[in-house]
Design a binder for these strands. Structure first.
Lengths: 146, 146
DNA sequence: CTGTATTCAGACTGACTTATCTGTAATACA
DNA sequence: TGTATTACAGATAAGTCAGTCTGAATACAG
């Protein structure tokens, strides 16, 4: 703490974006991504397996195998990914840790946090992978090819 | 994950607010707060010791001892407390986990997150304990007396 | 001065996160 | 058919976080 996403989730976002930037039909291998993105090999494997089981990615074994998006980039949102990895308690729980916190029963920063939380929620829901891929200007994503 | 503050920090905020609502001159004991706020006894002890060492609280041993604010409630901000417990990397680090992330070198949500991050930062800096105590309407803070 | 209530200090435990290691199953290609 | 390449699975290890336990130091009340 305190960061907004877990390490696991950060890696997931980086990798999914990498996969999304691949030309249609090509697959991305763990080996390839672990090098380009500097993510531990087996750890990345676990994360991508997890996303595959949940349908967000498709995987294929063998020499030409790897990972591809499990749905169109326009349909996959940040919310899908964060929900699958970290969960999205962030968008509902009291920031001061009280079990119940409402307008009638507010904590000391209830109003202010409600606004910020809504902003975060909107970002998660509205931002889809296609748009993210367009806005990404990181050098390690430049020459995406095996 | 994913919550914005650690457990430790949530407890700290709850306790400091409790202390701030005490009549001037009276001290709050761990025993008292652990009951009212439902926080593990020794864990709360550690947290308050930590805040005492950092000057945010004053402590006194013995039968009439306990904790009091280390500075006027108007001068102590959320930022002070969060910085002391969790650290405030949240207000500077890249949300996707990239080591460097700037306008020239943006990640996929750089712009959107910059706005939200500023909002969070402003809340932390501008919200002081005196105001928080005023806005707090939780039942466990109602009859504050030993 | 004595007893008691409190903070203070350190070691310890359990759960979770972040990896790492070793081996197995599936697939493409020569 | 065999071999290389890849994802998959399970065990293990190190680090951090949350919480517990025991006892010492300190200060007040009588």
């Amino acid at each position: 703490m305190s960061l907004i996403f877990s390490r696991r989730c950060e890696y997931a976002l980086q990798a999914v974006l990498y996969i999304a930037l691949k030309p249609q039909g090509e697959m991305s291998s763990i080996k390839e991504m672990t090098k380009k993105l500097d993510i531990p090999y087996h750890f990345l494997g676990k994360i991508l397996q997890d996303l595959s089981r949940k349908g967000l990615l498709k995987s294929l074994k063998g020499p030409t195998g790897g990972f591809a998006l499990g749905m169109p980039a326009k349909d996959m949102t940040l919310f899908h990914l964060v929900e699958a990895i970290d969960g999205v308690e962030l968008t509902s729980k009291c920031v001061m840790g009280f079990p119940e916190c409402s307008g009638k029963n507010p904590c000391a920063v209830h109003e202010q946090w409600a606004d910020l939380r809504d902003g975060i929620y909107k970002m998660l829901v509205n931002k889809h992978i296609a748009e993210m891929a367009k806005d990404m200007k990181k050098p390690m994503y430049n020459s995406i090819s095996r």
